[in-house]
Design a protein around this nucleic acid. Structure first.
Lengths: 218, 218
DNA sequence: GTCAAAATTATTGTATACAATCTTATTTTT
DNA sequence: AAAAATAAGATTGTATACAATAATTTTGAC
């Protein structure tokens, strides 16, 4: 199914906002966007409504719609929520993951290990994402899976920077092993606890996230 | 801040879909809606984009947008997700709820008890909702809170019917007491487990939910 | 009578015109 | 000179016209 023009525009704008191309509070000028996308204001306005609904922008009537970049507090809240969603996925995955999906999960982690061995941050970043997505999928709950995917996507730019800190990749990989073991043995409670800890931003990770925030802002 | 016309229309349509005024798969006719709301198609189409983004409708390009009512499976998935969100809220609430918020939570439950004493289903339905919202609030995580609120709103019509089954209200109230106690003593793990069980649809509750589904469909 | 092609009708998608409102600049008043 | 009032410009919100596509009906061939 070919996506609608409105959806294309909305997705592109989403990417741009994620990448930090727009400042927090910046107005999304309908006319400029119309010129940028070579369309009239009508499809732009429809796309903007989508952005508003997904929380990426705020609409002030008769004023315009303004991008809403999360600040430090909201970011921590989002990571906390992500941790809980991942924990939930892990809990269900431990109970219901299929043999095939488990195989893929292990394979994804093997790819992670190779990336660590090569000290390839970009690749680890990619494979790690797949590892987590396999857990979402393993939950066998499409609704939960989609929620997790959507938040993962939104937090993506903030995770990248963290990997550049020394020892972070190796530590992450070690946690993966334990998570797989818990899921394999069907210990949902343990899988949930491990995943929560794996994703939660605490201690040193907190400073790394904040450092990443500044980097993005510049 | 006065809401935009588009937001009003979108919210009204959301209510109508929640109430079951539109069949699953029914096309949302732009012209009819424009007449219904006494506006042109333009603001209608903007509102429809919001519905699509929030998952209440599906857009098929050049065909139209069609309402998407959850079937039994998706409904169970949504309740599972709700259970996990509530568990997460409970966990954080146990660690961070303020004295004031705890007081309000207890008060909300007292209102629940009064409703049970009067065997007032409608009132219990209302007060129970507030009880849970106090837990969301108690989590002190606005992002998580909003996610919980939004899903609670979406599941609202399906919870109502369940209360009509014998003993359901009294059982629910009993669980509330234990939840409060866990939060009060700061036992996040217990609060999470209790809330998960409180919301999860299993055993008899499953049949009640399915019965409710049929009732709504008629 | 049935199927296929063509024509008709209906519906979505987009551009544009205009109205309503807000913002900014200018003028006027004190 | 500062503040208030006014005017000009910019921007959002809505209606409408038209184009593109899909759905339906009609027509015609076999």
């Amino acid at each position: 199914m070919e996506p609608s023009r409105t959806e294309q525009i909305s997705d592109t704008l989403e990417q741009l906002i994620f990448k930090g191309e727009y400042e927090n509070g910046q107005r999304l000028d309908e006319i400029k966007l119309a010129e940028l996308f070579n369309v009239s204001r009508t499809p732009i306005r429809e796309a903007l409504q989508r952005l508003v609904k997904s929380g990426l922008a705020e609409q002030i009537p008769r004023r315009g719609v303004f991008v809403r970049q999360p600040g430090p507090i909201e970011l921590l809240e989002m990571f906390e929520t992500m941790a809980e969603l991942e924990a939930a996925c892990g809990r269900y995955a431990a109970a219901r993951i299929s043999d095939d999906a488990l195989k893929r999960l292990i394979q994804a982690n093997n790819s992670c290990r190779k990336a660590v061995d090569r000290a390839d941050i970009d690749d680890y970043y990619l494979e790690n994402e797949i590892f987590h997505q396999e857990i979402y999928l393993g939950s066998t709950n499409t609704f939960l899976q989609n929620k997790a995917l959507s938040l993962q996507k939104r937090l993506k730019p903030y995770r990248r920077v963290q990997l550049h800190f020394r020892g972070r990749m190796a530590q992450s990989l070690g946690e993966h092993e334990a998570i797989i073991e818990a899921i394999k043995t069907g210990d949902g409670e343990l899988a949930a606890t491990l995943l929560r800890g794996h994703v939660t931003v605490q201690g040193e990770k907190f400073h790394q996230l904040m450092a990443g925030l500044k980097q993005k802002a510049s």
